[in-house]
């Protein structure tokens, strides 16, 4: 994997929101490198900034209230955050595209499915037979009876089908990066598996890079080769999925893993993490996790830890070697 070609590089990304109640540092110094054709998973508790990170990759955060306070997002060497409007438009949906959490509200209710797919194609591709292409896309995502589904309005499809349409739309221009922001959270458990399977298959077939955002650590083990764990706007630990699942280093990752009920360890207690997600308006000094960390020491309260590399793994903790 070390040899694979670098596609997307995020450096020290900072996205802040100035709200009525104060400044929210939703993303504060996130960095990672996504190689071509790889699948990465971004996990973390609700509100830790996963969606904002994802949106920032195509500069989609609402401005205002949000703004980019620093960092770079390099897609094939070009900084997305400094692109002009036109260039950005050619990029979105073409080189990087999205599948959002709730298909029911993410599809435009007053346009037919066919039109919405066709729009994605027409925006970026010239000289193709749009109709055929739409049909092909719908078949590719396994939507039965594509001909008639094309003419339907979104609300007439089930959640699973809507999400398939969203995926088809995202793949309309064969993007290099697909960002799937909790693509299955709004769906039934059985459908979840189908959608993830579909994503995995399409990833293999089309060879794109996927950034999968999820709450659910159980899901990512089979899908992602690398795991990024996020906490309070920072990536606190990253590494190859299996290594990380087997030997978590950051106390937060440990807590997360301990909170996953495992079928194998029957009788093993399920423990959560103490306390709750910090108020984004009033983040603590030092390590943002220290108030909830069982291993917190003096230094954790004062100094914010830096990335520490160890082979393919990174961790942001003062004390990971000791604990």
């Amino acid at each position: 994997m070390a040899l694979s070609e670098e596609l997307l590089r995020v450096e020290d990304l900072r996205v802040y929101f100035s709200t009525e109640r104060g400044l929210v540092r939703a993303v504060d110094g996130v960095g990672f490198v996504l190689p071509k054709g790889a699948t990465y998973a971004l996990v973390g508790e609700s509100g830790c900034g996963k969606s904002v990170t994802a949106l920032a990759l195509a500069r989609l955060v609402d401005e205002p209230p949000g703004y980019y306070a620093g960092g770079r997002v390099l897609l094939r060497g070009r900084n997305v955050l400094e692109m002009e409007e036109g260039e950005l438009r050619r990029l979105r949906g073409n080189e990087i595209s999205y599948v959002f959490q709730e298909p029911a509200v993410s599809l435009n209710p007053v346009f037919r499915i066919g039109y919405q797919l066709a729009e994605a194609i027409r925006l970026h591709r010239r000289g193709v037979n749009v109709r055929e292409e739409v049909l092909a896309l719908l078949k590719m995502v396994g939507l039965p009876d594509a001909e008639s589904k094309m003419k339907e309005y979104p609300h007439r499809l089930s959640g699973g089908m809507q999400q398939r349409v969203m995926i088809a739309m995202a793949l309309a221009c064969r993007p290099a990066v697909l960002v799937a922001d909790e693509p299955t959270t709004a769906l039934d458990v059985t459908i979840q598996a189908q959608i993830l399977e579909l994503l995995a298959r399409l990833q293999r077939e089309l060879g794109m890079a996927v950034l999968l955002i999820t709450h659910n650590l159980g899901l990512v083990a089979d899908l992602a080769e690398r795991l990024l764990v996020m906490y309070a706007g920072r990536i606190v630990e990253a590494g190859p999925t299996l290594d990380l699942l087997r030997g978590p280093r950051h106390p937060y990752t440990r807590g997360l893993l301990a909170a996953v009920p495992r079928l194998r360890s029957v009788g093993g207690e399920v423990r959560g993490i103490r306390g709750s997600v910090p108020n984004p308006l009033r983040l603590p000094e030092g390590c943002k996790f220290h108030p909830r960390c069982p291993f917190a020491s003096d230094i954790c309260r004062r100094v914010e830890p830096e990335d520490e590399w160890d082979g393919e793994r990174v961790v942001r903790c003062h004390r990971w070697r000791e604990i």
Binding site: L55, A58, L60, E85, R89, R90, L91, R92, G93, N94, S97, Y98, F100, E102, V105, S106, L107, N108, P109, E119, A120, L123, H124, M166, M169, A172
Partner: peptide, 13 residues
């Protein structure tokens, strides 16, 4: 609304 974000993500101006 969310569909606006979807349209933006598609590259609509």
């Amino acid at each position: 609304k969310d569909y606006v974000r979807t349209a933006l993500a598609k590259g609509v101006g």
